[in-house]
Design a protein around this nucleic acid. Structure first.
Lengths: 349, 349
DNA sequence: CTGAAAGCGCTTACAG
DNA sequence: CTGAAAGCGCTTACAG
């Protein structure tokens, strides 16, 4: 039992199980440490015979290089961090996957964590990742003050913000055209004859929510429609609040005939409310939703490409690591209106 | 410009940017290295005055402990790896999030990667994570031979397989009750009067697909129904194949009156086919789907709890790391039938 | 072609 | 209460 034998070694019992190191391989092959390093890393300058001896020792011992040690010496960890809101949210899955693919193409691993939309937890996670010395950081902001990352960025952690801009620091960010997308979506409803159009969105302190509201206002103003306060509702996107907001807009003497929803969570709740509603109400939602085409009517949306957001951010991150970028930039990705039926319903006046 | 000044230091230019180390802090505070370590780690035995001097140096220099170095010395990296099929698949989002939460509770970070359902890539990723010396590994198998992980597991990498069992090695695994779930789902259709029931599933070499087919056969046999070959179709879950399979079952002189679909991807395509179909066909799908309740009819499913799969696996992993587990075990989590309409349609004979 | 020494930034084990 | 030395498992810079 070589297993038991090794356990009795000087000091290897609890450290990484009891794995052999390059030193062990060198001893067994009767060569120097550096020669093992050469073989393991495929560096030239080793005779075939020596290489074979080393390889045999590697196989016999079951050696696998400890990248954790390698990384310490080399200075780059070949890993990047991704701080997002919630990995379980379907919007972030494709984004995270896209970041991962870019990282993979650059030989890096991806460490990700969810902030749960909590600013403190975002900071805790971001700094923990920096302590691990990730080479770069992709952050989907939960908080609105990112000065805590300034020393890290200065120290060389390539950082790109996605979906929402960084707060109180100047940094790269990749956003969707929230303003333009919402404006187009609302204009679409107006083009189909609506004038009393409701807007239900997320808390106004969230950048995307504010921008989408701004797009709504702009579209309405473009059409010369003055917006009633009762048509706008911003707040947390929990079902209860959204339901109440929708029901209020849909009641009274002058109910809205169409609703523009500010994100996927709001949209889902409003679809449920409308399903129970007697009158037909048009609906356009920000964010696409799986199976949107199977609903009756099909759901018309302003879609953002979450994978493209992730890919763009990660590519920028690695270009920054390669040192080929100048100052911070703000990139904006287009959205796309997808008409499927719900946004083309006429006003039920 | 201290920035420029530091860059001219001996050797710090390219290493982790140019971050201060404990040595720098010690020099500035006029204390020994170990004292800095004590302050940074909150260890006792430092006078308040010394502690303050050190803290001032830390703040002035913007020091942050390099956990990457710490980890090398300590032997555990406080990180675990998750190898799954595709982070963008809605089934894996909640699973990944659940693993992350458990890791967080144990002070560990989560590195995840997608195998893209490719056995080679699964292996490459798994071994890369081991080279980083993750403390543990949660693997959703793509391949069916995991002997490559045997040396790692022996060396102490706590490993738990999820969703599908490990191939050719004895290891912990956490599965859904695929057989029982499918059996219940098909029995549900039979209870609603169906006898000609189709089954469309994933490739039979995939464990979950085989188990679900077995459940289908068992339910049919329980009811004394002999299954026609034409009612079963297993293969890749791309829309084209699934569509063809469904259309074939639904045509001919004795078409099926109900279909049981083997996973979420198959279900979505079959819903599309049925939407274009003239006759009403009952449908029960394995895996729940967002908005399933908003479809008309609502979609009846056999739901697995993907978050519970992830949580259970991660908890087992950490218990194994704590050394309080004996041999490998196979845990099976129950599924739940959720009736929403599509599975309760009578046969349209 | 090969290897001994020094070092990455920390912690451990020990001595004062 | 404090710190010098050795070591984690590698790579770098050098010398033979």
């Amino acid at each position: 039992m070589p297993e038991t034998a090794r356990r009795t070694d000087r000091h290897s019992a609890t450290r990484y199980g009891n794995r052999p190191t390059m030193k062990d391989v060198a001893a067994r092959a009767g060569v120097g440490l550096k020669t093992v390093s050469r073989v393991v890393n495929g560096e030239p300058g080793v005779t075939p015979e020596t290489e074979q001896r080393v390889q045999e020792a590697i196989d016999a011992l079951g050696f696998r290089r400890n990248d954790s040690a390698r990384v310490l010496r080399k200075g780059r960890t070949a890993s990047i961090g991704l701080v997002l809101e919630d990995l379980a949210d379907p919007f972030y899955g494709p984004l995270s996957r896209a970041v991962e693919e870019v990282a993979r193409a650059h030989g890096a691993l991806l460490i990700n964590g969810s902030s749960a939309e909590d600013a403190e937890r975002e900071q805790e996670l971001g700094l923990a990742l920096c302590a691990r010395r990730v080479d770069g950081l992709v952050v989907i902001p939960a908080g609105d003050d990112h000065r805590y990352l300034e020393p890290e960025i200065r120290a060389g952690v390539a950082t790109v913000f996605v979906d929402r801009p960084a707060g109180r620091i100047d940094a790269d960010c990749v956003l969707s055209d929230n303003y333009g997308g919402a404006r187009t979506g609302v204009a679409h409803l107006i083009a189909h004859g609506h004038r009393r159009i409701g807007f239900i969105g997320d808390m106004p302190r969230i950048h995307t929510a504010a921008e989408r509201l701004r797009g709504y206002r702009a579209a309405m103003e473009d059409a010369g429609i003055s917006v009633a306060d009762a048509w706008m509702s911003l707040g947390v996107t929990v079902p209860e609040r959204v339901r109440t907001a929708a029901e209020e807009m849909l009641s009274g003497p002058e109910p809205v005939t169409a609703i523009f929803t500010g994100n996927n969570r709001v949209t889902v709740t409003v679809i449920r409310v409308l399903a129970e509603h007697s009158r037909q109400v048009a609906l356009v939602g920000f964010d696409d939703i799986e199976l949107a085409d199977l609903l009756r009517p099909g759901l018309t949306v302003v879609a953002q490409d979450s994978a493209a957001l992730g890919r763009t951010a990660a590519e920028r991150l690695f270009r920054r690591l390669d040192g080929i970028l100048a100052g911070p930039e703000r990139l904006e990705l287009p959205t796309r209106l997808i008409a499927r039926g719900s946004g083309e319903l006429p006003p039920a006046d």
